[in-house]
Simulated assay, not measured.
Amino acid sequence: MKLSDRRDIETDVYQPAEDSRLLADAVCDRLEADTDDLVLEVGTGSGYVAGRIADETPARVIASDLNPHAVRQARGDGVETVRADLVSPFADDAFAAVAFNPPYLPTDPENEWDDWMERALSGGEDGRAVIDPFLEAVPRVLAPDGAVYLLVSSLTGVDEVVERAGEAGFSAGAVADHSFPFETLTVLELFR
Rank of each mutant, 00 (worst) to 15 (best):
M1A: 12
S4P: 02
R6D: 00
R7P: 00
I9M: 12
I9G: 03
Y14H: 10
E18S: 08
E18K: 10
S20E: 13
L23G: 15
C28P: 02
C28Y: 00
D29H: 14
E32Q: 15
E32M: 13
D36E: 14
D37G: 15
V39N: 07
V39D: 00
L40E: 03
E41Q: 07
G43Q: 02
G43F: 07
G43R: 11
T44F: 04
G47A: 13
Y48M: 04
I53H: 03
I53A: 08
I53P: 00
I53G: 01
A54T: 06
T57P: 02
T57M: 05
P58A: 12
A59G: 09
V61C: 07
I62N: 05
A63V: 10
S64Y: 05
L66F: 13
N67H: 08
H69D: 11
V71A: 04
A74R: 05
G76E: 04
G76V: 06
E80G: 00
E80F: 01
A84G: 11
A84N: 04
A84Q: 07
D85N: 15
D85K: 00
L86W: 01
V87S: 02
S88C: 00
S88M: 03
S88A: 15
D93A: 14
D93Y: 05
A96N: 01
A96D: 05
A97C: 11
A97S: 05
A99S: 11
F100I: 09
F100L: 06
N101S: 12
P102F: 02
P103E: 12
P103H: 10
P103Y: 09
Y104G: 05
L105A: 12
T107F: 06
D108K: 14
N111T: 15
E112C: 09
W113G: 06
W113F: 13
D114W: 14
D115K: 13
W116R: 13
W116S: 08
M117H: 11
A120F: 03
S122P: 04
S122I: 08
G123L: 07
G123V: 07
G124N: 08
D126Q: 08
D126W: 03
D126F: 02
R128F: 04
A129L: 12
I131C: 03
I131M: 07
D132Q: 04
P133T: 10
L135V: 07
L142D: 01
A143N: 04
G146C: 10
A147W: 04
V148D: 01
L155R: 11
T156G: 02
G157L: 07
V158K: 08
V158P: 00
D159N: 12
E160V: 00
E160N: 03
R164T: 13
A165W: 00
G166C: 13
G169H: 08
S171P: 00
A172F: 04
G173T: 15
G173S: 15
A174C: 06
A176M: 07
S179P: 05
E183T: 14
T184I: 13
T184N: 09
V187D: 08
V187R: 05
L188F: 09
L188N: 09
E189C: 09
F191E: 15
